[in-house]
Design a protein around this nucleic acid. Structure first.
Length: 640
DNA sequence: GTAGGGTTAG
């Protein structure tokens, strides 16, 4: 080995720098650097840092790798610390730290990034492009264009960054115009444009551009990127035939022959995107067919097919694929956990969740949402605290589930804590704030619900209004509910069927029979909303509470729905209040048929007979209950 | 080790 090395060195000794370079590449330092960058690439940042800290000799690459690791994780403070400690920064260090600041949200960070850019001892094209793209991604196209015009030498990346920026702002025409003025585009320019157009829903325009500019020989090399983007775009929107047409336009990559990377041909992403289109369309057969025909599968191919089986609730096939696949990653695990959780098998979901080699935020969110969906609110709350103990920070998806958990648990204490987190994490226009209103009103804290409602000054959508009107209605605050409804109409916010459920409930609580009838009629005639069974249930409730039991019964007999639990329940409780045994028997009978195991109708009937001192009948109900083996459940209240 | 573009999970 030593001889070989000497021979090799002698051969190139006339090139001193080449020799030096080789010395570095065969040095332990280079090995360490490579190892650090591998650790960072596999998301093992902590291990990378530990190694970094033990290293006696470091060069700029060592420092920059570590900084880049933090920048990618958006840990700008740690990145900056290293940058400041670094003995000799090169231009890459500067570019990295600037890019780090620009990839963090918030104008403070962007200002700091800009400041550092101004302070740079020298700037190259990458430095300029970093800042241009940074501004573009943060919606500051004015600054991006100013720098674009000011930079000494532009390259194609500078143009592409501007195009992406326009498209992020929804400025489709500006982006297309800009693209057409470019002195030359490469395949990335075309892909950037296509992908932005797809994001803006301009699929037809994207297809036009792809066919107009996609034949340039220069961009042929990686044209498949742009094709793949559009295939996926069609797939996402259920236009699976068009996706397939595009897929068929790309020359087949199978059938041997030498591999020429530059040739325009399908690659694994093309197959995956097409498969995903079928999965989205619910066509698992076609997806499977593609999967079986592929020559080359990657983890994403397996994951896509697994998610397809998860979507159609075929967990047998999904877990079979999961067992067969060579290298399941965190996405594969998450799909399996989600599949079991969504299909009601919480135990298996938990089993896989606990066995995961690596969890990410989505893993936690999936499992918490699974508990929530299966109404195991305590399990969800436990997992949420475990998540925080393990240092994982919740995001809006986590909080959205946990708010529902608070609503389910009627836990105002936890709810208020979550509210604190929400204000730190999401903007006031987030729909999460709507679920806070529901949470507070379910927990009996109508004043807090009202506060959240009023805090949403500019961003009230119809769901916000529905939540608040519903909150008032369920608290029996009919006047407030109706007043808010009036205000909503005045502001020209179109009510939905949910709004009217709350409005009718408010009328029921307040005993406003006539108002209820008027609202019901207005819903149909003024707003063209088809009445649902919930509206009829409310109407039955309204009539029943006022003792208009015959009218209520007539309504049940004539409405266009088969009466459900809520309808008969409303009638039964009205019968109890107004001591109408005859109709009570009818309602109770119907309820028992719908829910044989429920004790409520028996208990209600029993109490009615007892109140009327018809002891024989009461006893009869009790015996019947025993015969049917119905157990009286412990009562619980919605309000803690 | 730094700038722009493609597919999968909540």
């Amino acid at each position: 080995m030593a001889t070989l090395y000497r021979t090799l060195s002698r051969r190139s000794c006339c090139h001193a720098s080449a020799s030096l370079t080789r010395t570095y590449y065969s040095s332990p330092l280079h090995q360490y650097n490579k190892y650090i960058s591998n650790l960072i690439r596999s998301c093992r940042l902590r291990e990378a840092r530990a190694l970094f800290d033990t290293m006696k000799h470091r060069n700029a690459v060592t420092w920059n790798s570590m900084i880049s690791g933090y920048v990618h994780r958006r840990e700008i403070v740690k990145a900056r610390q290293l940058f400041d400690e670094m003995p000799q920064r090169d231009i890459v260090s500067w570019n990295l730290i600037v890019s780090g600041y620009f990839s963090c949200r918030g104008s403070r960070f962007i200002e700091e990034g800009r400041k550092l850019f101004e302070l740079m001892p020298e700037r190259d094209c990458v430095s300029w492009n970093t800042v241009i793209s940074g501004y573009a991604k943060n919606g500051r196209m004015d600054q991006a264009l100013k720098l674009f015009n000011a930079m000494p030498e532009r390259n194609v990346v500078s143009f592409n960054a501007v195009i992406t920026g326009f498209l992020l702002n929804g400025d489709v025409d500006l982006a297309v115009g800009f693209f057409k003025t470019m002195p030359e585009h490469d395949s990335a320019s075309l892909s950037a444009l296509i992908s932005g157009l797809v994001r803006n829903g301009e699929l037809d325009m994207a297809a036009g551009i792809l066919h107009e500019f996609g034949s340039d020989d220069d961009s042929k090399d990686n044209l498949v990127h742009a094709y793949n983007t559009l295939i996926a775009g069609y797939g996402q929107r259920g236009r699976v035939e068009e996706a397939r047409r595009l897929f068929d336009e790309i020359p087949d990559d199978r059938g041997g022959g030498e591999k020429d990377q530059r040739r325009f041909r399908r690659n694994v992403v093309s197959w995956n995107s097409m498969m995903m289109s079928y999965v989205k369309a619910g066509d698992i057969v076609s997806a499977r067919e593609l999967f079986d025909r592929m020559v080359e599968r990657d983890t994403c191919s397996w994951n896509t097919l697994i998610s397809g089986y998860v979507q159609i609730s075929n967990m047998d096939e999904a877990s079979k694929l999961f067992r067969e696949m060579p290298c399941p990653d965190v996405l594969s695990w998450n799909s399996i956990v989600s599949g079991f959780a969504q299909n009601g098998n919480l135990n298996l979901a938990k089993y896989f969740f606990e066995k995961m080699p690596h969890k990410n935020l989505i893993s936690w969110n999936t499992m918490i949402a699974g508990y929530e969906k299966n109404e195991d609110y305590k399990g969800a709350a436990r997992l949420f605290s475990q998540m925080q103990l393990e240092g994982e920070k919740p995001d809006k998806h986590t909080l959205s589930s946990v708010i529902s958990v608070c609503t389910g648990l009627v836990d105002l204490y936890l709810g208020k804590q979550i509210h604190q987190l929400v204000t730190k994490i999401v903007l006031p226009d987030s729909p999460i704030n709507n679920s806070l209103i529901t949470m507070y009103s379910r927990c009996g804290a109508i004043v807090d619900a009202c506060t959240v409602f009023n805090e949403r000054k500019l961003y009230k959508d119809v769901i916000t209004w529905n939540a608040m009107i519903g909150g008032y209605a369920s608290h029996g605050l009919a006047a407030e509910a109706l007043q808010l409804f009036k205000l909503m109409k005045k502001l020209k916010i179109h009510p939905t069927y949910i709004t009217f459920i709350s409005v009718l409930n408010a009328c029921a609580h307040a005993g406003l029979v006539e108002e209820g009838r008027i609202q019901f009629k207005s819903m149909v005639t003024d707003y063209g909303i088809e009445p649902r069974i919930e509206h009829f249930a409310s109407l039955v409730d309204i009539l029943g509470r006022q003792g208009q039991l015959k009218e209520a019964m007539d309504l049940i007999n004539t409405m266009p729905f088969k009466p459900d639990k809520a309808v008969w329940g409303a009638l039964l409780s009205a019968c109890r209040v107004h001591n109408n045994v005859e109709l009570a028997i009818v309602a109770a009978d119907a309820l028992i048929k719908l829910e044989p195991e429920s004790s409520a109708p028996y208990v209600l009937l029993y109490n009615m007979y007892a109140n009327l001192r018809q002891w024989e009948d009461a006893e009869h109900v009790r015996v019947l209950m025993e015969e049917k083996n119905v157990k009286k459940q412990a009562g619980y209240s919605w309000v803690d």
